[in-house]
Design a binder for these strands. Sequence first.
RNA 1: CAAGCAGGUCUCCUUAUCGCUCUUGUUUACAAGGGAGGAAAGUCCGGACACCAUAGUGUAGCGUAGCGGGUAACGCCCGUCCGUCGAAAGGCGAGGACCAGUGCAGCAGAAAGAAUGUACAGGUAAGGCUGUAGUGAAAUCAGGUAAACUCUACGCGGUGCAACGCCAUGUAAACCCACGUUCGAGAGCGGCACGUUCGAUGUGGGAGGGUAGGCGGUUUGAGAUGUCAGGUAACUGGCAUCCUAGAUAAAUGAUAAGGCACGACAGAAUCCGGCUUAUGACCUGCUUCUUUU
RNA 2: UGGCCCAUGGUGUAACUGGCAACACGUCUGAUUUUGGUUCAGAAGAGUCUAGGUUCGAGCCCUAGUGGGCCAA
Length: 141
Amino acid sequence: MPSGTFFISYFYRMDLSYPTKEKLKSRQLIERLFAEGESVTKFPLKLVFAKADLAEDVKVQAGVSVAKRKVKLAVNRNRIKRLTREAYRLHKHLVFNKIETSYAFMFLYLGKEEPSQEFLNQKMILLLEKFLKHVDDEETT
RNA sequence: CAAGCAGGUCUCCUUAUCGCUCUUGUUUACAAGGGAGGAAAGUCCGGACACCAUAGUGUAGCGUAGCGGGUAACGCCCGUCCGUCGAAAGGCGAGGACCAGUGCAGCAGAAAGAAUGUACAGGUAAGGCUGUAGUGAAAUCAGGUAAACUCUACGCGGUGCAACGCCAUGUAAACCCACGUUCGAGAGCGGCACGUUCGAUGUGGGAGGGUAGGCGGUUUGAGAUGUCAGGUAACUGGCAUCCUAGAUAAAUGAUAAGGCACGACAGAAUCCGGCUUAUGACCUGCUUCUUUU
RNA sequence: UGGCCCAUGGUGUAACUGGCAACACGUCUGAUUUUGGUUCAGAAGAGUCUAGGUUCGAGCCCUAGUGGGCCAA
């Protein structure tokens, strides 16, 4: 991790918030996302995405989901969703600066065990890089 | 000490940084404050609230069951009697009625609710008339069995916040079948009968088309804490103080440091009162048959 | 959130009014066959999802739980 003044200024110019307008809330949009969207996977995370005209003036609206089939207890589902949101919040800048059109995101957790925050952070970085690569390939072809 | 019984309390804490949600204040970005549970769970009971008629009568159906009390109500709680388990503290109990009627009892046994009968002993005018043995859970006893039908007493209308009200958007006032306009189709959210209300380019059914976005309901309540009084108790009344989650793809998290008991079961969704199930730690009181000190 | 239903050998199903849990397929053993299949003969394998209760006796009745499935504005 970078430290000292560089570390502080590094964070200073980045947006680390995750306000309401960046959350995926429309039921219609979510149903369309699962019907038509594409996906990339980096176990245990899966990202379903689709280009979308968003009502709010943001680049991405994202949601999080954990299957009841995989994780039985509501307490554990809540915790995994919180950790996933936290991982997205800290690393969403990787995507924001590099895409032109707006997207709808849905993160799915495929594992059965409760992960650590550090583990999820690493996977989130890898997942978002894989997503960018996928988008680049599509544009060039 | 050990084992056991009963009751109660708490549910990691502190600091810093980055985030989430609600409220308030300035005002469009900040500041201050609030932010899961004792079970939030299972959905097993009881209510509030909403609509259907201020939910009415009878029947069917369902529930409860010693007696008395508490409560908005209950299948809950308190007291008490009886039964039962325990050495005790104490626990548990669907605990009305089989002289209203009907049904049921495999095997064994002579015989199972209808009548009869073996062995031994006793007894009579005479006989299973009497006792014992034998089979069985039960053998003539006002038999047993009602978590068998049933009877008695009491209670229960239905549907559920995805209730319900309002705004916005959109389509098909089209098509087919049936019935009907005061001698009335049909509707009023489980059945039947009655009663009652509404009721006319109307109602029901079929096939098909469309919308499925937002606001209210939505958190101040049978409320919490303290205290005084009444009551064996559950609980009730007076006074004072307090406001204590309110999301809607759905808010409590992350990182760093320190401490300790190293953190069990587990996440609010209309709201309350219970029950049941899961579960960590601590405290208080009580009991002691046997053995050891 | 609210409501409803189911659970019996490895699998799919029976079991009347409470009275010895039955059947088919599968499995195992033996026979027939050069071997395998088919066929024939025989055997094992559940104590009824779990824990209590009622009863002389429970798969069946009652209570609580566990697991699975279905319905809806």
